[in-house]
Amino acid sequence: MKVVNLLAMVDTEKCRGCKTCERICPVLAIKVENRVAVVDAERCRGCANCEQRCPDLAITMVKRDEPLVVKVDVGAVDYDRIMDICRRAKLNPEQLICYCTGTRAEEAAAAILQGAKSPEEVSFLTGARTGCKVECIQPILRLLEAAGIKPQPPKGGWQWYGRTVTVWEIPEAVKKKYASRGFYFDEDIKILDRVAAAPLQGRSDA
């Protein structure tokens, strides 16, 4: 869940249409049309990625008159299916996947079950990956994959490039090679497996 209280605003005098904003927006809310960036106010999740990377300082974040509440209703989806996707992704349904918005795996899974087929759609529906924009791409990709979806990165975009390795997939030869240097692969697998299997504390918003 995210309360979106900011909106990107483009200074059309400064914008040179370089498309940096378009390439990095995690919800595809900004596009260059006729050499000027245009913001879709309904899609914008106020993450400030565009404002932070615009080379011409043409974007500012302004406070919305009416904040948007972005949330997927977990209770509207069969929870067994949510649990199934989370377990396949080796995540506990209650585990946080986005530290900034407090989005839990169950909400992202619910978004997928309600039709999200890409990280951009998951972010649009849940708000995840619209805080720091950095740390939560992998669990979203893992959840999509667990649901049998293989998304493609936005064409020409830099939003994301691909799912990467998890600790369960580290080759045994690598584990052995670095065993004496403080990398505790197998021990961490045990911890992550225990977390994934841990009992749920409650479905307070269900």
Partner: peptide, 23 residues
């Protein structure tokens, strides 16, 4: 590093295996 790598560190590898992404 890019976001994919940093997310690998903080979400995919575990608390004591994380820094292997850098190596």
């Amino acid at each position: 590093a890019r976001i994919e790598t940093r997310s690998t560190y903080h979400q995919n590898l575990g608390p004591r295996a994380a820094n292997f992404t850098a190596r």
